[in-house]
Amino acid sequence: MSVSDQMMKGLLDGAILGLISQGETYGYEILEKLKERDFPEISDGSIYPVLLRLSKKGYVQTELKKSDTGGPKRKYYTITDKGLEELAVFRNKWSYLNKGMNNLMRSVEDAK
């Protein structure tokens, strides 16, 4: 796996957790919201391993409910207290990382 792929994998966990924190949602809707916000380079299915991981760690909880389309029951995700704590840690780390990376990349561009 390339460096950029690994980076995307880590960021996707935080991005999805952030989306779920905004209210109850389900798989396809999460994907649509990621696309709306121009989250780059994800295949549609890549959100499901992430959702399984977040669920396994207890950051989100799931509930089966009737879907709006009247089809079979759909799995909805909501964030837990543990998930909110993790999201706060992620946001904090992300702001440091974002600042640090921007500074670093600017110096790389200057060197060119």
């Binding site: 396809y28 994907l31 295949s43 549609d44 299915g45 089809g71 079979p72 029951k73």
Partner: peptide
């Protein structure tokens, strides 16, 4: 997970997308 992906695929196909959009090309890797 099968029920969840089935639900996703129904919506995806209704929007004109194929299975490849889920798997990103390699079914095995996915």
């Amino acid at each position: 997970i099968e029920a969840e992906l089935r639900d996703h695929l129904k919506e995806a196909e209704a929007h004109g997308q194929s299975v490849e959009s889920i798997t990103g090309g390699s079914v095995k890797d996915y």
